[in-house]
Structure formats: structure tokens, C-alpha cells
Amino acid sequence: MLDIVIEARQATLGPGMAVRRILPFRLRRMVGPFIFMDHAGPIAMPAQLTTAMDVLPHPHIGLSTVSYLFGGQVTHRDSLGVEQIIRPGEVNWMTAGSGIAHSERFEDPAALTGGQLEMIQTWVALPEKDEEASPAFNNYQPEQLPVFTDTGVWMRLIAGNAFGLQNNVKTHSPLFYVHVVLETGARFGLPREHAERGIYVAKGSLEVAGRTYTPGQLLVFTKATDPIIIAKEPTTLMLLGGEPLGERFIWWNFVSSRKERIEQAKADWQAGRILLPPTDNQEYIPLPADKSKPAGSPPPEALS
């Protein structure tokens, strides 16, 4: 059974950086452990304006950020001292745990002027036992990620397990995250082993039970359903979900099972107890007021 269809809303992260925000949604805060999802691009911008898109250093707790690019490149720097250029097809998994700060810089003007930059960023909430884990960052190259092909179907397992595939991307709870490309007329399904399952239409269109769905829509299904997905045209999908973790609170860039931990994170960022990236520490995003909309993060009131 189709549980809900979530329509992406436009959010602005900075000058020229409008994204489609899919999660969180007021009627469906999470799908499995996934608590946040943004789709940026394709973006084209004059070279002289590219630095305006940079996401300055900002903090996270209680989650893992997952960056996955369709095109272009982004430079990641964090308070662990990691500096990583993120390229298409890689998985970049940053676990914030007890607290980390990072920046995302767009330092390749050619990718922006050519309209190549396109990326999906998700946040995965951590189980309570791992919410205060030590921060970590891991980059996984495309050759480390299994790919499956069939007639009219290509898919890459980003993380977790699905369709009999698994990889070594370190996760903290049962989940799946898959990049799927379908040719016109191809038929596809969802992995059956997970309690909560979603299909995000990134490009193209698909048909499920006689209805057509288009880019920017997230279809969430119950476990008992085994939908048949039919591509109406060349279509790109992101499949995601897993086992639910229970209630989570989200404010700005902070996620926790405890409200008081969110308050502590606010105080820690204001007091400088969450360190800045050592190679990107000259500027940062300050803690917003409750009604502000800081660049690079969901405003506290964005659950609409």
C-alpha cells in the first residue's frame, strides 16, 4: 500500500543555491532512519559567483550525513582535519555522533558554469546507543559499491543491503540506499526485507498502480506492499528506507532522541566547544534564532 506521497518544497541555501527539500515533512518526519533529504541542481552559475554558494562551517550531532553526486564536485572539510573532494558515484559518509563541524565548498567553477553540479544529501539518524559516538568520515569509491544490471535496469548500492547486494559502507542500523537508472518501459520493485521503504523520483517519471509520478516526489510504502514500478521514460530513482528508530527531535543541524541534548548542542556551538575545520576556520555559520534561515541547513520551522 502507498502510505504517502511527499512533494518536494523549494528551500534556499544561499545565493543561487535553491534545492528541493523532501524530508523532513510534517506528516512524515522519517523513512526508516532517514530524517533529511535535499536534492540540489543541476546548477549553472557564472564563475564569479560560485563562492557565494559555499556552505560555511556548521555543526552536527546525532546523525550521519551522506553526500552523493550525480555531477560536478564539492570539497568537504571537517573538524577531524579531513579534506575530501567529493565526486560523482562516491559515497561520503560523515558520522557526527557527539559533534562535528564541516564545510562544503564549490571550488571547481567549471562544474557550475557548465551546469554539471547535481547532488543528493541525506541525513541518517543514529540509534540511541550511537548518538554520542566519536565523529568519523569515510569516503567510498565507486568500485567499492556493487552494481547490478538487467534488461533496462542499472543500480548501485550506496549503503546497507537490498536485492541480495551489500557493501562495506559503515552504517549503524538496518537500512538501504540505492541509486537506480531505468530505461523506458523497464519494470522494477522494492526490497522486501525492510519495514519502511521509499522511492524518490530524481529524473524522468514512473507509473505505480496506474498513476504517474514525476521528479520531486517521494513515494513511501508500507512493508506489506510489493509495488511494480514501470518507467514511463528514462528515469533516475533513489530508493531508501530501513528500520524505524523511534522519535527524533531535529533543530537546525542537530538531531537527537532527547530535547535537552539539542539544547546542549546549541550552547556548545555558541561557546566554541565544537571545533571548526583546521583548514577552514576563518568563518562559520552562527547559531540561528528560532525564526532564522541560515545557509546550508534546514530552518527550525521548515517541517511543512
Rank of each mutant, 00 (worst) to 15 (best):
45 M>C: 12
47 A>G: 03
48 Q>G: 05
49 L>H: 13
50 T>D: 04
50 T>S: 10
50 T>I: 14
51 T>W: 07
52 A>M: 14
54 D>M: 03
54 D>G: 04
57 P>V: 02
58 H>G: 03
58 H>D: 09
59 P>Q: 06
61 I>Y: 01
61 I>S: 01
62 G>Q: 05
62 G>E: 04
62 G>P: 02
62 G>R: 07
63 L>M: 15
64 S>C: 12
65 T>Y: 03
66 V>H: 01
67 S>Q: 05
68 Y>S: 09
68 Y>Q: 04
69 L>D: 11
70 F>I: 09
72 G>L: 08
74 V>A: 07
75 T>V: 12
76 H>L: 06
77 R>Q: 11
77 R>W: 14
78 D>G: 00
78 D>P: 00
79 S>C: 07
80 L>V: 11
82 V>C: 06
86 I>A: 10
86 I>Y: 00
86 I>Q: 13
86 I>M: 15
87 R>T: 15
87 R>G: 13
89 G>H: 08
92 N>R: 08
93 W>L: 14
93 W>G: 04
94 M>G: 05
98 S>F: 08
99 G>P: 01
99 G>H: 00
100 I>V: 08
104 E>R: 07
105 R>E: 04
105 R>W: 01
105 R>F: 09
108 D>Q: 10
109 P>A: 13
110 A>G: 09
111 A>N: 09
112 L>S: 03
113 T>F: 09
113 T>H: 11
114 G>S: 06
115 G>Y: 01
116 Q>I: 06
116 Q>W: 12
117 L>S: 10
121 Q>L: 05
122 T>G: 09
124 V>R: 12
126 L>M: 07
126 L>I: 10
126 L>F: 10
128 E>V: 09
129 K>A: 15
131 E>F: 02
133 A>W: 03
133 A>V: 12
134 S>Y: 05
135 P>L: 14
135 P>G: 14
136 A>M: 08
136 A>F: 10
136 A>C: 10
137 F>D: 00
138 N>F: 13
138 N>C: 08
139 N>Y: 00
142 P>R: 04
143 E>G: 03
144 Q>A: 15
144 Q>W: 02
146 P>T: 06
147 V>M: 08
148 F>P: 03
149 T>N: 13
151 T>L: 02
151 T>C: 00
155 M>Y: 05
156 R>T: 08
